[in-house]
Structures are given as structure tokens and as C-alpha cells.
Nucleic acid binder design. Structure first.
Length: 882
RNA sequence: GGGCGAUUAGCUCAGUUGGUUCAGAGCACCUGCCUUACAAGCAGGGGGUCGACGGUUCGAAUCCGCCAUCGCCCACCA
């Protein structure tokens, strides 16, 4: 097959992905080999691929492919998450566009639409992952809301309920008035928000509901809630307000009478020292209300509008009401002053609506024991975090975990299996049948239609926390006594988890909790936290900014391998990723380099009758060692999850060592054949390099590996054994480096003197240079080497390779004065350096305290420096005499 | 308000237990080359007071203190 001069990714990628699928290379079944398991962080079922996914899944795929080539039974389980709020809001929006509201059509009908939406848009992202080359075991694809996994969620709920860790309670929750659901504390984002501090005058009541001329002033940011006030509170130690004891005050505008109470909660030096207490609409006020037995009056409805209880401004949105009431207060003479004020306000992570603290009945899961156990998992190192510093974040959260609000006022999700009897009692059972039976124990003649299931569904994370277990054995969660099936027993615990730090609490922590609870051990050994993908000037990628490229376009333009390289190049562990298309271009250039190196190698004609050149022999000796050295480095990087470093090590091995040095050293003259031994070695190294880089660049490596020889159907580089480290003599590496430096020296002189590479030069080297690499110097430097004891008096330029003196003979091209100046400069530097070293050695405290090796090194520096000085001086002398 | 992290070349980052000639890499940049694998390339080159100040030490990019700037997480002063 003739190879094009440029690599064309588009032509080969689909072909090989189809081949891999056809042969089920990604599929894993339990066997006698050591498992290596990753569960995908399930993307939203209706989501589409963005750069964050590209980063995450590239890393996952690199790890999985690397493990596979190291003989592990690698299994990467893919799947999607039903993403309760996100998906439901998309479906609601779609219906709204059609003029349909979800309340009108009811739960069942709505769910039909939701499933239809899921069927239409779901799983697109999994198709996109195929384009990226991800080697997921597609036969194991899971969905958090598929029947088996939903059952696991319900069983888990029943399990914790029976254990007494799930309870229903009326609590102040974070209410999202747009999504119309409660959200957990973790889904609330606090942002400093510019607002106002309103100072309001409340008149003291005369006892009959009429204002006196005495008043107090409170400060509030939420004047629209005054109608829900239940009291005014002051600090008992605050003498300024003692006169208020036992008094009642009137709420402005509506003139309702409320008491003045005392509580330590109030800060004396904040605001006016008087706090309006609004138990229905503020978390702290609710607490105060509980302590003082205050009535709770709700005046804001689920949509964030004032209701009948408010008496005034009924039906107005809370923010509109705020503006209007300020005006009304001003007109009524109750507004003392308005200050600018910045305070943290909670926003819904999902809808960005301002969270309304709201009293409502919700389901909670107790966190104390779960959190304590899960903290121990990480503290003991059974699960490691990379980078390690996330352990601190994790610990802080675990030590302060509040009970988890797990109910959501949505329909898309697993419905809470609580069934209410007409008398208000409820039973919790996994199925309606079991619920009926349980209900009959309470109320013997109850019928199925008398039971009413709870309207709420469970938080999405209440299903995804089971992921590492339920994808293998959905019967396990909720049944810790159940014997794990074959898959779960084999694949659990999984090996590594790659995810973003933004879901450390939502997901990672909770998977550890569930893992410990149901399996009695950690769900994964390592958690690698990636950074957030930002654009090149540091902004988060977002749709509104339009700074997020479409990964599929990039794959189309540059190829999946290039995109993968581009992402990895800039992804040092734990740091945010500054995405720049230039890095993907670099990846594409690397593909092309690999491609062309293969074109060269493949173009060699072999002659079995000719002997290996000394330069080729030296290059092979060296590259053999270099390969082993690099493989060892790469493996070390992988162990430490330094994937971009591993990539860079291979990149340099391929480009600099193999292409720039090795291939040039063994390359025969144009049109000439190469000997058999060299050819075989060269192809062998090429294959080793392909295997080494395959986890990062799966497509081009498969393409070339298949092309190298006639592979049988069913063969793949995916399962080729990774190159192993062989023992090597470090001196081989050092000697070749000397040769490289000698060549570089010659090239430098050529550049300086404008001498064409084609022109062969004479290079004199003083004795002691390793002889076996001299042929490499001759070939690569295009020089004729002569080993001499003395350079004699001919014209030329001298230079040093470490301690070896070299001299390029040049006649007519040397400007003696210039050379002298250069040598004198070098000499001065060297003398200064020597003085420094000697100063150190003369320092008694240094000699007394420093380790022997360090002192020894200083002595070596001294000796080397002396020899260089000697050489420079003799060169100078020769020049001056010429 | 509390905690964590970062600050090294124009950019993105390495730099392990303080000590090899340690101040590095990739990209970008500059100069010269279309040398028959590759111009997505080849050869050469310039560029940093390691954020500031102080301290420990024979020796500090590295350890300690303080400050500055940036980022992230947590947080109920209305």
C-alpha cells in the first residue's frame, strides 16, 4: 500500500473503531486475570459532549488501554445518568413551547413525554464517545433509571428506612421557585449580591393595636417579608432595648401586633440590634421561632409570589413586592433609611433562581454514621485522592455533613416508595403489593386504591451513589446480605475513578458511603481529580460565552488522536486546563511525524548480503537502552497519574530520539538498501513505540501496526503486550549523548560560519572519546574524525564536549581576532566558575557538613574546570601564534 | 469570616529527601534551510533576580515567618 505524504485521520478512525467493535475487543468478562475496572462518571442522558467530557474520558481511556496492554482484564463500564432536574426542566421547556404545562397533563402523561425525549436525545453522548475512541464495554451500558437500577434505588431507600436512617420531617429547605423543588445544601451556590439594607420603623402598640409615638428600628434586606413577622427580637444583654421588655409592636402597613422577645442569637453591634423574626422564611428565624414558640405564617408561595396571608401585594412576585413595599413604607413614614449592602445570597445551582428558604415536608437521610465511615476510608488510604490535597476538603465536609435532603418535587426519577393510608399514616415498601400488605396490618380492610404513593422522587445522586455496585449487580444495593454476583465479586472494588472536583461531595463521597455500607469496602482505590477546562484566557467554558468549541468539529478537523493529545498536553494533574487549539494542532503534527517516520522505515529496501554499518550498530545499542530507560520513566509517571508527563516522555522519545537521532543514524544513503539486522531492529523499535503511545493515540497506532505486516483478522495492537524494561548499561546512554553533543558542536559551527550540511568537514578529537560512537558523529555531523594527541597549528575552531576537546579544521573561514575574543570570554567564565568551586571547597564548614558525595562532586567540578581552562589556554596560545 | 492551593521563560507547566554544571520542558519567538520520510518539517539561537521582604543553613526555586496578587472550597450576622 502506498502511503500518502500526510496522515489523514478521518479515513482511518471510523474503520478501526468498527473493527474493534466487531471483534468485541472492549468487552470484558471475569476471568483468571487481574481485573482493572473503571466506571464512567455517567454523563446526563440527554447531554452532549463538551470539552470537559473530552478531557475526562480521554484520561479514562488512556488508563484503560494502558492496563489492557499490561495484561490486566480491563473493563470500562459506560452509561448515563437520568439527571432528574436537568432532564425534567428540558422536557418542561419543550412542552411549554407546545403550550402544554406539566400539571395539565399529569404525572403519567408527562413521564411518557419524558421517556420519549430520553429515547430521542438520550445516548447521543455515548455515540460521541465512540468518535473519541473510548474503549468502553458497550455491552455493559447502564442507565440510572433503567428498571434494574431503579429497583436498586428503591431497595436502598427501604433499607435505610428500616434501619431508621431515613426520616420524613418538616424542615426549612432550600426551595427553588423556578424548578419548584427542594434542593440539597450542596446544590445552593452562595454569591455575594448587591442589595439594600432597609431600616424600618415599627411603632410600639398601645395595647389595643394602635400605634403610640414610641418606636424601634429594625434593619432588613427583605422588607417584603414583614407581613410574616412573628416577633421582634433583641439581645437580652442589650441595655439599649430593655425598655422594650414586655412591649408589643405593630407591623407597618398591616398593623398586626407582635411581641418583642429576647434571644442571644441577635448580635448587638450589627444593624440596629433589633431583628425581625420571620419563622416561615428564614432558617435562623425558624430556629428562634421554635425556641420561643412563635407562630409560623407563610406569605410566599411555591412560585415565589405573595399569597393571601400577606394581606397586601397578594400575587406579586417577591422581588416586585420588595420594590413596591419599600415605596409603600416610605409613604407611610416607616422607612428610616436605605443603605447599600452586599451579602451572600443563595442561588440554585441548576436554575440560578434565588433560593427561598421554605418550610416543607421532605425526606432526609442521616449522614452521621455514613460520613464517619467514609471519612475513615480516605483517612486510612484505602481510597487515595490525586492530588492529595482534596483529602482536606473531603474531611471538612465529612465532619460537618448535614442530613441529606433526598426528596425532590419532580416526576422524572425514582418515586419515593412511601404509601399513605387515608388516615395519614404511611408505610414504606419496595412494591405497591408489599405496601398494601403492610397497610393491611394497620388497617385490615384497606384496598389498593386507598393507598396513595408519595408524590416526590429521589435526588439523582441517590441513584448514582450506587453506580460502582449497581452496574455490576443491581440486586446488591439495599441487600448487604445478598451474595455478590460473579461480576460484582470480580470487578469490585473498581480501580480508578477519574472525575472533576466539583462533584467530590455530590458523588465521590456518597459512592464511598454506599460502597462501605453495602460492600463493606471502598468502591475504588484511586480518585483522580481533573481540573476544569477553561479557555486560554482562563474563563470557564460556557454556552453563553460561546468559548466552548464543539469537540466533534475538532475531531473532524484534526482527528481524535490529535484532540486527545491536545487535551492531555495541557492537563497536569489537579490544575485547571487552559484549552488552546494550538495544542491540538501540536497533536496533529505529532500524528504526521509518526506517519512519516513509518513512511521512511517502510520505504527501506533490505539487502541480506550487506553488513551492518558501525553507525547503525552504535545507534541500535543506544536506542535499546534509551527505550528501556523511557519505558521505566513512563511507567513511573502512570503510577503517579502524571499522564501529561508520560505523554511528553514518549513524545520526545519518538520525535527526538527515534526520528531525529536513531533514524538519521541508521538511514542508508539515498537509494541504498539497509542490512537485515538494522532493518529488523528499526521495525521492532517502531512497533515498541506504537505500543507505548497507543493508549494515548489509539487510531493511528492501530492503522500503522496493522500495516506493518499482514496481520490476521482479529489481531489488534490493543492487546499487544506493552514494551518492558530490559536491563541496560547507563554508559551506553552517556556515550551516545557525547556523540550528540559533538554533532551539535559541529552543527553550531556550520551555522555560525554558514557552511552547508553537505560539505564534509575534518574534526579532530583528542584521545579518550568513546570510539564506538565515533561513526555516529561522522555520519550525523558529516565530518571525518581524526583522533589526535595534539591539534597542531592549522586554522579552525575548537570546542569542548564536557571534558573532551574537539577541533574543526577550517581554512580561510576563521576570523582570528573573533575566535580569540570568544575563547577569552569562555576562559573568563571558566575561571570565575573555578573560583566559586574553590571557594566552596575552602569553606571549612562546607567540608565538615556536606555529604561526601556532594564534596566529591565539587572536586570533580574543580578538576573538570581545570582541564577546560588548560584546553582554552592552549587553544588561545595556538591562535595567537598562528 | 474560616480553610486549601497557586505564583519559575511571552504562554502552559516540571523541578522528588535542601547539594550533580539546576534554573529545565513543550509551545511560541528569532535566524538559516523546500537537504529525495515529514515546511504539520530540518538545523541553530535568544529569553527567567524562581511574586516581595525577612529568617534557618556551609548551601534555598526547594524549609520557616510575614506580605502581595490570583483561584477554589466551606460559611446562617438579619
Amino acid at each position: 500500500m502506498e502511503l500518502a505524504a500526510k496522515y489523514n485521520a478521518a479515513e482511518v478512525e471510523d474503520k478501526w473503531y468498527a473493527y474493534w467493535l466487531e471483534h468485541k475487543f472492549f468487552h470484558s468478562e471475569p476471568n483468571e486475570k487481574e481485573p482493572y475496572t473503571i466506571v464512567i462518571p455517567p454523563p446526563n442522558v440527554t447531554g452532549i459532549l463538551h470539552m470537559g467530557h473530552v478531557l475526562n474520558n480521554t484520561l479514562n481511556d488512556v488508563l484503560i488501554r494502558n492496563a489492557r496492554m499490561h495484561g490486566k482484564n480491563a473493563c470500562w463500564v459506560p452509561g448515563t445518568d437520568h439527571a432528574s432536574i436537568a432532564t425534567e426542566s428540558k422536557v418542561v421547556a419543550k412542552l411549554k413551547a407546545e403550550g402544554i404545562s406539566k400539571e395539565d397533563i399529569g404525572r403519567e402523561e408527562f413521564l411518557k413525554h419524558a421517556w420519549a425525549w430520553k429515547e430521542e436525545h438520550g445516548g447521543i453522548i455515548l455515540q460521541q464517545l465512540r468518535k473519541l475512541g473510548c474503549s468502553c464495554d458497550w455491552d455493559r451500558t447502564r442507565f440510572t433509571m433503567e428498571p434494574a437500577l431503579s429497583e436498586a434505588v428503591i431497595n436502598t431507600f427501604v433499607y435505610f428506612y428500616r434501619k431508621g436512617w431515613i426520616y420524613k420531617g418538616v424542615r426549612m429547605v432550600n426551595w427553588d421557585p423556578e424548578a419548584l423543588t427542594a434542593v440539597s445544601d450542596d446544590e445552593v451556590v452562595h454569591k455575594d449580591t448587591q442589595s439594600h439594607f432597609y431600616h424600618l420603623r415599627y411603632y410600639i402598640s398601645d395595647g389595643n393595636g394602635q400605634p403610640t409615638d414610641k418606636f424601634l428600628v429594625i434593619a432588613t434586606t427583605r422588607p417584603e417579608t414583614i407581613m410574616a413577622d412573628a416577633a421582634i427580637c433583641v439581645n437580652p444583654k442589650d441595655e439599649r432595648h430593655h425598655w422594650l421588655r414586655g412591649k408589643k409592636v405593630l407591623i407597618p402597613l398591616i398593623n398586626r401586633e407582635i411581641p418583642v422577645i429576647e434571644d442571644d442569637y441577635v448580635e448587638m453591634d450589627f444593624g440596629t440590634g433589633c431583628l425581625k423574626v420571620t419563622p416561615a422564611h428564614d432558617v435562623h428565624d425558624y430556629e428562634i421561632g421554635l425556641r420561643h414558640n412563635l407562630p409560623v405564617l407563610e406569605i410566599i408561595d411555591d412560585h415565589g409570589k405573595l399569597n393571601e396571608n400577606a394581606q397586601i401585594l397578594v400575587g406579586e412576585d417577591r422581588f416586585v413586592a420588595r420594590k413596591k413595599i419599600v415605596k409603600m413604607l416610605e409613604e407611610a413614614g416607616n422607612l428610616v433609611k436605605v443603605e447599600d449592602y452586599t451579602s451572600p445570597v443563595g442561588y440554585s445551582e441548576r436554575t440560578n433562581a434565588v433560593i427561598e428558604p421554605k418550610l416543607s415536608a421532605q425526606w432526609f437521610l442521616k449522614m452521621d454514621t455514613l460520613a464517619k465511615v467514609a471519612l475513615e476510608t480516605v483517612d486510612s488510604g484505602r481510597t487515595k485522592f490525586i492530588p492529595e490535597r482534596y483529602v482536606n476538603t473531603y474531611r471538612h465536609w465529612m465532619e460537618n455533613a448535614h442530613d441529606w435532603c433526598i426528596s425532590r418535587q419532580l416526576w422524572w426519577g425514582q418515586r419515593i416508595p412511601a404509601y399513605y393510608l387515608p388516615n395519614g399514616q404511611f408505610v414504606v415498601e419496595a412494591t405497591p403489593e408489599a405496601a398494601l400488605e403492610a397497610a393491611r396490618a394497620i388497617c385490615p380492610d384497606i384496598k389498593a386504591e386507598d393507598l396513595h404513593q408519595d408524590e416526590d422522587v429521589l435526588d439523582t445522586w441517590f441513584s448514582s451513589w450506587l453506580w460502582p455496585i449497581s452496574v455490576f449487580d443491581p440486586d446488591m444495593p439495599g441487600h448487604p446480605d445478598h451474595k455478590p454476583n460473579k461480576d460484582l465479586a470480580y470487578y469490585y472494588p473498581t480501580s480508578d475513578l477519574v472525575t472533576g472536583p466539583d462533584i467530590i461531595f455530590f458523588w465521590v463521597a456518597r459512592m464511598i458511603m454506599a460502597g462501605e455500607e453495602f460492600m463493606g469496602r471502598e468502591p475504588f482505590s484511586n480518585v483522580y481529580f481533573t481540573g476544569i477546562v477553561r479557555d486560554k484566557i482562563g474563563r470557564k467554558m460556557s454556552k453563553t460565552l460561546g468559548n466552548s468549541p464543539n469537540p466533534l468539529d475538532l475531531i473532524g478537523t484534526y482527528g481524535a488522536d490529535a484532540v486527545r493529545i491536545g487535551m492531555l498536553l495541557c492537563s497536569s494533574a489537579g490544575n485547571d486546563i487552559f484549552y488552546d487549539e494550538a495544542q491540538i494542532k501540536q497533536g496533529a503534527a505529532f500524528c504526521n511525524k509518526i506517519w512519516n517516520s513509518y513512511r521512511l522505515v517502510k520505504g527501506f529496501s533490505v539487502d541480506d548480503s550487506i553488513a551492518q554499518t558501525p553507525a547503525a550498530a552504535a545507534a541500535i545499542r543506544w536506542f535499546d537502552a534509551k527505550l528501556s530507560e523511557t519505558v521505566a520513566t513512563v511507567e513511573d509517571h502512570y503510577r503517579k497519574f502524571r499522564i501529561s508527563d508520560a505523554l511528553m516522555a514518549i513524545y520526545k522519545l519518538f520525535w527526538d530520539d527515534y526520528c531525529a537521532w536513531y533514524l538519521e543514524a541508521i538511514k542508508p544513503a539515498f537509494g541504498q538498501p539497509v542490512d537485515r539486522a538494522t532493518y529488523d531492529a528499526t521495525l521492532g523499535y517502531f512497533e515498541a513505540l506504537l505500543k507505548l503511545i497507543h493508549p494515548v493515540m489509539p487510531f493511528i497506532t492501530e492503522e500503522l501496526w496493522q500495516n506493518m505486516e499482514d496481520r490476521k483478522e482479529g489481531e489488534t495492537i490493543m492487546y499487544a503486550a506493552a514494551p518492558v524494561v530490559k536491563p541496560f548499561d547507563p554508559e551506553t546512554l552517556v556515550n551516545f549523548e557525547l556523540a550528540e553533543e559533538a554533532v551539535n558542536g559541529v552543527r553550531g559551527i556550520r551555522n555560525q560560519k554558514n557552511i552547508a550540511p553537505k560539505e564534509t568537514l575534518d574534526l579532530k578529537i583528542k584521545g579518550g572519546f568513546p570510539a564506538d560512537v565515533l561513526p555516529v558523529v561522522e555520519k550525523m555531523g558529516n565530518v571525518k574524525v581524526e583522533t589526535v594527541a595534539d591539534f597542531g597549528s592549522g586554522q579552525g575552531v575548537g570546542f569542548m564536549v564536557r571534558t573532551h576537546e574537539m577541533f574543526v579544521a577550517l581554512s580561510g573561514l576563521v576570523n582570528v581576532a573573533e575566535e580569540i575574543a570568544k575563547l577569552e570570554k569562555d576562559l573568563a567564565y571558566q575561571q570565575k566558575f573555578l573560583a566559586g568551586v574553590r571557594g566552596k571547597l575552602a569553606n571549612e564548614r562546607f567540608v565538615a557538613n556536606a555529604p561526601a558525595a556532594v564534596i566529591e562532586n565539587e572536586r570533580k567540578k574543580e578538576a573538570d574546570s581545570l582541564s577546560k581552562i588548560e584546553s582554552l589556554e592552549s587553544q588561545l596560545k595556538a591562535l595567537k601564534n598562528s
